[in-house]
Design a binder for these strands. Sequence first.
DNA 1: TTGTATGCGTTATCAA
DNA 2: TTGATAACGCATACAA
Lengths: 345, 345
Amino acid sequence: MIDMSSRPPTMKDVAAAAGVSLKTVSRHVNGATNIDPELSARIRDAIVSLGYRHNLAAASIRPGRSAKVIGLVISDLANPYWSVIARSVERVCSANGYLLMTVSSEEDAARHRLLVDRLIAQRVDGLIVVPPRQDTGGWAAPSASVVPLVAIDRPLQEGEATSDAETAVRADTILADNAGGAEAATRELVRQGARNVLFLGDSLELYTMRERLAGYRRALAPSDDDDRLVVTTAHTAAEAASVVGSLLGEGRVDAVFAANNRSSIGAIEAFTRAGERLPLIGFDDFESATLVRPAIAVVAQDVVRMGEAAAEAVLARIAGTAPEPAVTVLPTRLVLRGSERAASV
Amino acid sequence: MIDMSSRPPTMKDVAAAAGVSLKTVSRHVNGATNIDPELSARIRDAIVSLGYRHNLAAASIRPGRSAKVIGLVISDLANPYWSVIARSVERVCSANGYLLMTVSSEEDAARHRLLVDRLIAQRVDGLIVVPPRQDTGGWAAPSASVVPLVAIDRPLQEGEATSDAETAVRADTILADNAGGAEAATRELVRQGARNVLFLGDSLELYTMRERLAGYRRALAPSDDDDRLVVTTAHTAAEAASVVGSLLGEGRVDAVFAANNRSSIGAIEAFTRAGERLPLIGFDDFESATLVRPAIAVVAQDVVRMGEAAAEAVLARIAGTAPEPAVTVLPTRLVLRGSERAASV
DNA sequence: TTGTATGCGTTATCAA
DNA sequence: TTGATAACGCATACAA
């Protein structure tokens, strides 16, 4: 058993025990081939008997070396949407020898900034970031000047005043085709005969909500472009359920486009409670959506691909094998479970 | 705009620019109070104009200092069960100034060992680990001798041969009351009149499965203690659905205890397909379980509390304010949605 | 209150 | 092939 109370053994200790120099141990540990087999064996023995562990943190402070760690800032790891993205990022990072530090910003701009700074202080090699909802700006440019930065799910927005191209931060950006997906969903509801499609979503502070609303409007005739059928106050499933519940009796609405997960769930709850059901298409697939009867049609995002693309983008930029920062928009897919039809957007 | 191509500025650069010594900059950066306000201002200006960033990685190699990073090894971050635990761990760590490095072992013992070694090489301050399913052993003792180690969801098992107390690794362990929850669920099904309750679960290689099976057996009369109603091959929802589907017509089974998420989902799918439904209680709650009609009764684990307890345990051990390693068993809760009843186990 | 000098564990240079 | 020595960026005795 190795003694935990004393100072952990270093390369120097190994070198002394093996009767070789520090540099030779370093070579051995780093997998150099040009080492005398006998010395190599002595070093190996010394490492085992001392319980030596290579210290990557110490190695990383040398110029040209790094800890091979990527930082990921998402909204909330407990949300399946983000956790699947995180897993996907992790998979690519891990395959390339990188570890991942994941933090949840809770959509709080101040906390977001703190976390980004902390990750930079920790000297991550790259940063994948979901820009916070109410971005006060000013963090992206300094961060991107210090570490490769990739935006995912939403583009960077450098404050309202600096929206011109000159001051905008150029960073690789991975987005889903929110507008296209919303447009396809709305068109499908109309095709099925709906005349008054409700847009049920969260705050327009969210880039994705603005995009989905734009797609919804694009699908409707310009004359329908009013706000009477647009609800953007469904922050929770309960709120969504309450909205749908109060609209169900009136007959003003004959179909629902639920612009996010919680809105879909809330709408279904309201349907079940009222014993009345309207045509519904939701945005974002969710676990056990197939269990609900009738099955729920959704606009599915390729969340796995989003994570992969983001990870590949940082790694390419770290490797220096990347051209100008690019915006990647991944297609969404309309999944019509009820009618057994699927169409690509 | 700061130049990204050249070497990033160090404390020495700041000291030179501010016309003070290295030590004074170090004090300023570390928040020391006893600094001449004028020097402090000069340093602050220099930091801003140079774009200096504190290098925590470099600072962490000093004796007595650390990077304040915790390592978390789970099975798969994309699984909501683990991601909620990870989020919970992250919350506690973050509140105490620690970052989290999360990796997915994919239940692969070799990969698990690699990841643990990598995290130790990275010099994490503590390690929270889900022991892999087919643990070949031998990793825990060396790891625990080097860094505080906490097991979560399953206990450490140091190989089959070394199961005696002397060689067993002592580490803080956070478990759910799997047996108790399974027993309560099975008893409830029997109370509702079931005579032949099916145990539907995954491989008994999993500690949690063995425990849940033990609880199931505890609830039944000893004479019922045969394996004819025990299925441990439901690795996926589809397999579970197939098992249940083939049993539905036979009449040998009059209730189902689904020992995990996927089994529950598979059973419901089979029910829906066959148009016939048996009393069902599942283990592990899941998102939108409330959407399914009739609502699904489940044994709910306090996943959030599990993560918290694990994080608190590592932090306490890091701080040195912890007694002997302890095993914490958190209660599970029987949630009877159909009958609007809930009972604590 | 501030500065000087030394060391943390590792890798890189360069000479042997 | 191997080894002595100097960095890397930072923090801390200790001296001023």
